[in-house]
């Protein structure tokens, strides 16, 4: 399903995320079955689907940690399977896994480490980390060990990490997980700002909730495919008429 809410802007061709007839199976079970997807630069897209629908697998394919069995996926025109190194220079990924942070380092140390792995100089890393900590309201806890942070604070750190180095495409798994109301507001505003600055932002989540109002494009994944909004498979919250 696809509902266009705002017009997209493309800074250059080809840009953003593109999937064509993606197929991926695990242990004989088809997770993605001929999936197509487009997220242009400057667009914030939300992909909704139930648990096990294949949302995270799709995200992982764009992040190059899983390769498709068939079909193609590209990031800014670079094929994820054949040009992974170029893809990894352009993406910022955040998966649902708070253990992906180093728990015996502080939040600031975690961010600086990953800023340097993205090729930022020491000075740029420091300034970008400071800026992200401020944007996501993490300054007060930035010198605490990750082990001592709450789930919501870790979640914000994970999203901050995905933004390091100003990636052109952001792949975000359930960004609102564990956040309180203020945190949700901060996060939505943050993700919106990334799209406004030109990044293609793909968010996946099992429920739309607050994400609905923020998305430029809404997709729904069912049985490994993205269905047209009017198909009989469509049930649940996405029964709105698409806006022109």
């Amino acid at each position: 399903m696809r509902i266009i809410r705002r017009s997209s802007t493309r800074s250059r061709e080809p840009s953003g995320l593109k999937a064509r007839q993606l197929t991926r199976c695990f242990s004989g079970r088809t997770i993605l079955d001929g999936t197509d997807l487009d997220v242009d630069s400057g667009v914030l897209a939300v992909l909704e689907g139930p648990n096990g629908a294949g949302k995270t697998t799709l995200l992982r394919i764009f992040a190059t940690v899983v390769q498709p069995d068939d079909g193609t996926a590209s990031v800014d025109g670079y094929d994820v399977a054949r040009e992974g190194a170029h893809v990894r220079e352009r993406i910022g990924a955040a998966f649902v896994n708070e253990r992906s942070l180093y728990w015996r380092l502080t939040g600031r140390e975690n961010l600086r480490l990953f800023a340097r792995t993205r090729g930022l100089s020491s000075r740029d890393a420091r300034s970008q980390v400071d800026s992200l900590l401020e944007e996501l309201d993490l300054q007060a806890i930035s010198r605490r060990w990750v082990a001592d942070l709450s789930a919501g604070q870790r979640q914000r750190l994970i999203i901050a990490r995905a933004s390091l180095g100003a990636p052109t495409c952001m792949l975000i798994d359930e960004p609102l997980r564990g956040l309180d109301e203020v945190g949700i507001e901060t996060m939505l505003s943050f993700l919106r700002s990334r799209a406004i600055s030109g990044a293609a932002v793909l968010i996946v989540a099992p429920k739309l909730d607050e994400l609905r109002g923020e998305a430029d494009v809404l997709y729904r994944l069912r049985d490994g495919r993205i269905h047209p909004w009017s198909s009989p498979e469509m049930v649940g919250p996405l029964t709105d008429q698409p806006q022109p």
Partner: peptide, 14 residues
Amino acid sequence: LEGTLEILATQPIS
């Protein structure tokens, strides 16, 4: 085991 490998694999590191 700790869960950091996946995110390291998304970084531009050889």
